[in-house]
Simulated assay, not measured.
Amino acid sequence: MNYNQPPFYDQRQFNFPGFLWGQLFGPGGQQQFPGQQPPGGFPGGNGIAGGGQAGVPNTPPPPFTPEQPQFQTYAVDPGGIRGCMFRFTYVWLRRDAFWFFPTYVGRNSIAGFRWQGNSWVYYGIDLDRIESFQCY
C-alpha cells in the first residue's frame, strides 16, 4: 500500500490520457482544488501555462456570446466535439453556459479550460451534461 495516497481511491480508475494521479493529489496526498495549478503543470499540458495546444490559452475568448442552436441533445457524441479541441468553444449546459477551451476528449467526458471572467481555470464536463456547443 502506498501511504502517500488517500485511502479508498483506486489509482487505476484515473489512468487515462491527460490525467495523472499526482496532478489531482499532490505530494503527500494533498488534494488540489479548482483554480490551483497541479504539480508539474496542468493535466494534458507541458507544465508551462502559455498558449498553444499544450496549455492554457494565452488570450481571452471571443468578446461575444453566441446564440444557442435550436436543437438540443440528450448527450454529445465524443466524435462531434473532438473537432473543437484546442479551439474556443461555447458550451451550453442545462443551467449554465460559458466559453471553454477543450484539451482532452474521452468517451464520456471532456476536459480543458473554462473562462471565469478574467482567467482560465482547468475544468471537466460529463458529455451527457452538454445540451449544445459551438466552436470557433
Rank of each mutant, 00 (worst) to 15 (best):
Y3N: 10
N4Y: 11
Q5N: 09
P7Y: 03
P7E: 11
Y9S: 07
D10A: 14
Q11G: 00
R12E: 08
R12K: 12
Q13W: 09
Q13K: 14
N15F: 02
F16Y: 14
F19V: 13
W21D: 09
W21N: 09
Q23W: 03
F25G: 01
G26C: 01
G26D: 04
P27D: 06
Q30W: 04
Q30G: 08
Q30D: 07
Q31E: 05
Q32R: 15
F33Q: 13
G35K: 01
G41I: 07
F42Q: 03
P43S: 11
P43Y: 08
G45L: 05
G47M: 07
G47K: 06
I48W: 05
A49N: 10
A49M: 07
A49S: 15
A49I: 02
G50E: 08
G50I: 11
G51W: 02
Q53E: 07
G55Q: 02
G55R: 05
V56W: 00
P57D: 11
T59I: 13
P61C: 13
P61E: 06
P61M: 06
P62K: 13
P62Y: 11
P63W: 08
P63Q: 15
P63K: 14
E67C: 08
E67F: 13
E67D: 13
E67Y: 09
F71R: 10
Q72H: 09
Q72P: 00
T73S: 13
Y74N: 13
A75R: 14
A75V: 13
V76F: 03
G80R: 10
R82G: 05
G83W: 09
C84F: 03
C84L: 02
M85E: 07
F86P: 00
F86N: 12
R87A: 11
T89S: 13
Y90T: 05
Y90M: 07
L93I: 07
R94H: 10
D96N: 15
A97K: 12
W99I: 08
F100I: 11
F100T: 04
F101I: 02
F101W: 14
F101P: 04
T103S: 14
T103R: 04
Y104P: 01
V105C: 08
V105F: 02
I110N: 01
A111I: 01
F113C: 03
W115G: 11
G117T: 06
G117L: 08
N118F: 10
W120S: 03
W120E: 01
W120M: 07
V121K: 04
Y122D: 01
Y123S: 11
Y123P: 03
I125W: 00
I125R: 03
I125H: 00
D128V: 02
D128M: 06
D128A: 04
R129W: 07
I130F: 03
E131V: 14
S132K: 03
F133M: 05
Q134P: 00
C135Q: 04
Y136T: 12
